[in-house]
Structure formats: structure tokens, C-alpha cells
Design a protein around this nucleic acid. Sequence first.
DNA 1: ACACTTTTTTAGAATCATTATAAACTACCA
DNA 2: TGGTAGTTTATAATGATTCTAAAAAAGTGT
Lengths: 132, 132
Amino acid sequence: MKYVDKLRNSGLRPTKQRLQICEVLFNTEKTYHFTINDLALKIKNQLNNKISLATVYNTVHAFEKKGYLKQIPINSNQTYFDTNISDHHHFYDLKEEKLIDLENSDVGPINILKKINGKKIKSVEVLVKLED
Amino acid sequence: MKYVDKLRNSGLRPTKQRLQICEVLFNTEKTYHFTINDLALKIKNQLNNKISLATVYNTVHAFEKKGYLKQIPINSNQTYFDTNISDHHHFYDLKEEKLIDLENSDVGPINILKKINGKKIKSVEVLVKLED
DNA sequence: ACACTTTTTTAGAATCATTATAAACTACCA
DNA sequence: TGGTAGTTTATAATGATTCTAAAAAAGTGT
Ligand SMILES: [Mn+2]
Ligand SMILES: [Mn+2]
Ligand SMILES: [Zn+2]
Ligand SMILES: [Zn+2]
């Protein structure tokens, strides 16, 4: 099992549920932008066993804390997550309500000139909203 | 009353509640970044009459639709609004949970190189997360 | 394998921001 | 002033997320 070590190394027990969620989330080249609801549906369709919604929440949060997922700041009633944990930016298609990756090279360097005393920059994220 | 025309010109009747909310929101030079809860508290403290929570929601959404407020995309369980409707960016102080304006000149031009077929850019927003 | 501890899963309840409802109220216009 | 459309309000409903606590599973040592 390719995800057993990943989980063990993070101090997370490689349970059946976590391994299956790993398969759904990470067993592809493509970035997956999702809400908990998206993921729960995907699990229901891809797997023949059920994982409780509480476990989906628990697992996503555990993975986020370990740095295997990140949250994307967006105005929505649902929280969006991203399997692409590299520093990168996003298009947000307002009509489709879908995120699209923008590589750093698609945006160019962003230089923040203003400084706030005693604070340091943790991340710089660009959100480009798209309309038709 | 300085806000009567503003409201009339937008097709919004200048009710007592809306005028009072205008005072709280716009009667200052400073940008106000707020959640509905922030605003409801400010109203309770500044005014000696009560405005129902439903009206606060209704009014904020009406003002947003008319372009007098904008929403700031951020990961929070509450929606953040901004009285500064110009194109500008934000620091987000993770500890204080407060937004700080970044003028466009504090960030420099952002050039989005990637194009999506049939879509056009509606906005470009930068969120800079700050930690201690 | 067994006993024991710790972590995890789970169904269901609780929370809480937000939206919907519908009746009372108000602004506006003829 | 009367009529009408728009607005406010208390309250209920919704829905994403978190909490609870009991059952199940995983890890550890023997
Ligand atoms: Mn959110
Ligand atoms: Mn939000
Ligand atoms: Zn992404
Ligand atoms: Zn601002």
C-alpha cells in the first residue's frame, strides 16, 4: 500500500478509511479542488463501502494539518480544499463554481512592498475571478 | 441627509434603518472590514434603537449588489465585507483575524498570462496571510 | 494469540451563520 | 388620503460544520 508509510510518517494510523480517502484524493496526477460534499459524493461513487461524513471531515482536517491538503480562500458557503499544496494561484469560474490552477509562471512575481511591524508573510495567494 | 440621494439613486428607499446603517458604515474616512456580526454589534453600540438582524443582512446584501460594499474572499466561517470598493488587496492577520488594506501601489501590477477560452477576468485579488 | 491502551470511526445531536417566511409597517405616488 | 409596492421584523428553516460518546480498530507488550 503506497499510502501506509505516508500516514505512518505523519503519526496517523493507516486505517481502511484513510487509505481509501488517500486513493480518491491523491491517486491521480491531476489537482483536485473540492468541497467536503464533492469528496463525499466521489467516495460514494468510487467505493463500494460507506465512510461516514464525520470521518470525511476528520480525515480532511487531519490531512490539512499535516500539509497534504490546503484550503483555498474563496467566498462560498462551503470550504474549498486543494490537493495541490505548492504555492500557486487560482482562477475561480463564477458560473461553474470551479477552481482552476494558475502556476506561478502564469502570474509572475508578486512583490509586496508594504511591511507590517512584527508580522511576517506566510503566504501570498491570488484569486482571479472569471465571468463569461 | 447625505445618504438619501445615494439610496434613491440606487432604487433603494431611504428608510431610517438604511440611513443609520449608512452612517455606521460610510461616515468615516477609514475603510471598514467587517462581518455581519461585527456590524450588528457596532449598530447596537452606536445607535440607541434596535435594528433587526434580518435587516442588517438584507441591507448589507442590498448595498453589496449596488456596489457600495464588496465581499472579501477569505477562509472563515463568517463572510467578510469591505467598505473600500476600489480594486485593492489585503493582508490577513491570522492571529488577530483582521484584514488590512494593501493599495495597488503596495503590490505592483499583476499580469495574468494564462487565458481561459470564453471567459474574461472580472477581478484579481491578492490575499497575503500574516503570522507573527 | 491475548490483554491492554490509544486512536479512530460512527450515528446522531448540537451549533451557528445565513436565508426564508409571512405578517405588520412604511415610503411613495396618484 | 388611499392604494401599492417595498421594507422591516420576529421567528422558523436550512445547511455546513463541529461535537459527543459509545463501538470498533489499531498498536504494544507479553
Ligand atoms: Mn468558507
Ligand atoms: Mn465564507
Ligand atoms: Zn489549486
Ligand atoms: Zn479592503
